[in-house]
């Protein structure tokens, strides 16, 4: 057995340095690595490039790192929920690369599958295509998009074991499995770290080979961005 367990977020992120490129899992605030983000804020590393579908909200998620001006560049598909983000972007303090959501996910996947690039029709004929190679297959144009390279991928799972095997819960899965595959070093925080042998091999979403460090997370807030309910009849 390979034991990848570290004590906590502090130990998991100990070698993340200024200028690193990080992938951060989650969609909105759903399935984000809360413990690791809090520790990154505490550690105060700067000039980070963050690849994440969203940039958190004011006061939570990656929004906390933006407030401390730790992020040099964001690579995201949608950043609409964060006033501080918009302020830093319009003032030129923050560099941002907005890319289609499917392109973002598939560039992560490509890294995990060992493929240098993918071809996608998303963004053909738009400003996203500027400077990119276009290839025509069977009469349709596609953009060549490169696999991401990230120093660290930081993901959040529901359950995991010391081997690094991960299972996600519901739509908190989102970008986490594809980012877990894509980091030079992948850090997983889990709600429940279980004994090796208790996870059904058939149910594993991320095989442990992709995960380098795993720890039991604590005090998950799991904030809901847009609580929407219906009336009881």
């Amino acid at each position: 057995m390979i034991n990848k367990v570290v004590a906590n977020a502090q130990e998991a992120i100990k070698d993340i340095e200024d200028g690193n490129t990080l992938m951060l899992g989650g969609f909105g605030l759903c399935g984000i690595p809360e413990n690791s983000i809090a520790e990154l804020v505490k550690k105060g590393v700067k000039n980070l490039t963050c690849i994440s579908n969203n940039a958190g909200v004011d006061g939570f998620g990656i929004g906390l790192m933006l407030e401390k001006k730790q992020v040099k560049k964001m690579i995201s598909s949608y950043v609409g929920e964060n006033a501080e983000f918009e302020r830093q972007l319009l003032s030129g303090e923050l560099e941002v690369e907005l890319i289609p959501q499917g392109t973002l996910a598939t560039r992560c996947m490509a890294a995990g599958y060992g493929m240098p690039a993918i071809f996608t029709p998303a963004g053909v004929g738009t400003e996203v295509a500027e400077g990119k190679e276009v290839r025509n297959f069977k009469g349709k144009d596609y953009l060549m998009e490169y696999a991401f390279e990230a120093d660290f991928a930081i993901v959040k799972a529901w359950k995991g074991d010391a081997e690094g095997n991960l299972i996600y819960k519901s739509t908190a899965r989102n970008f986490n499995p594809v980012m877990a595959m894509a980091g030079k070093i992948t850090i997983a925080e889990v709600e429940e770290l279980v004994e090796v042998g208790t996870l059904d091999p058939d149910k594993i979403h991320t095989p442990g080979i992709y995960v380098h460090r795993i720890f039991q997370g604590v005090d998950y807030q799991k904030r809901i961005e847009n609580k929407t309910v219906r009336a009881k009849k």
């Binding site: 929920e81 996910a105 609580k227 929407t228």
Partner: peptide, 28 residues
């Protein structure tokens, strides 16, 4: 409501009999 179950508008939602969940790469 379940914080782990949202739609693309980040609204809390529910699943139905026959629903399935997958990652973002598969979704696209």
């Amino acid at each position: 409501e379940d914080a782990d179950l949202i739609n693309a508008g980040k609204q809390t939602i529910t699943t139905l009999a026959g629903s399935s969940v997958f990652d973002s790469a598969l979704s696209f």
